[in-house]
């Protein structure tokens, strides 16, 4: 149990995918303009991450032991098909949710956080349960970073900022600040 909690908090705050490992920066910079879209993106991310964790566990346990050199190709195909299947299922079961998620769902295929999750999970030799906890923790971390960034950007809209600094440069400065803050969590787990 302690191990699982460790994995959860480690992936959520100490090694936050976005702010510490620079994974999934595209949505972080792209859809963090408004709080509600950020929340939806985070939810979609977490969902796909969890599904990926299960699929990767299956691949590692039953398929890739025999053909290790196909690892990368297998992962990317599985992720791409998984996102398509999830998209079709949601469209069938809940058209409302499908409309809400919109373009964010297919976008996740090329989100490097998902492939990174698959690779980390393999390298660290996580089992099914550990992988699931890792995925939920990472998803929560991504959502947390997105929400923080979106709230800050909504307030920044009203701030008096020189034109030249508006846009990506400003977002990156804010991200740097957030990343600095998250470094404070570094001692959280090592001391226990």
């Amino acid at each position: 149990m302690g191990d699982l909690a460790w994995i959860f908090f480690s992936s959520m705050v100490v090694n936050n995918f976005t702010l510490m490992l620079f994974l999934g920066l595209c949505p972080f910079l792209g859809v963090s303009g408004r709080l509600d879209t950020a929340l939806r993106m985070g939810a979609a991310d977490m969902f796909v991450l969890t599904m990926t964790a299960v699929a990767v566990w299956f691949l590692n346990a039953y398929v890739l032991a025999h053909v290790p050199y196909l690892r990368l190709i297998a992962f990317i195909i599985v992720i791409a098909s998984l996102v398509q299947i999830v998209e079709m299922v949601i469209k069938k079961l809940s058209p409302v949710l499908f409309r809400e998620l919109g373009i964010y769902l297919p976008l996740i295929t090329t989100n490097c956080a998902v492939l990174a999750l698959a690779i980390f999970q393999t390298n660290r030799g996580y089992g099914l349960l550990e992988g699931l906890v890792f995925a939920v923790g990472s998803g929560a971390g991504l959502t947390l970073a997105l929400l923080l960034m979106a709230s800050i950007r909504e307030s920044l809209d009203l701030a008096d900022i020189p034109d030249v600094a508006r846009g990506t440069a400003l977002v990156l400065f804010v991200a740097g600040g957030l990343s600095l803050a998250f470094m404070g969590f570094a001692g959280l787990l090592s001391s226990s």
Partner: peptide
């Protein structure tokens, strides 16, 4: 990690 964000921010600021 924060240094990466700050460096890229300064680089993009200069480009802009």
């Amino acid at each position: 990690p924060p240094g990466g964000f700050f460096t890229l921010a300064f680089v993009l600021l200069t480009v802009a």
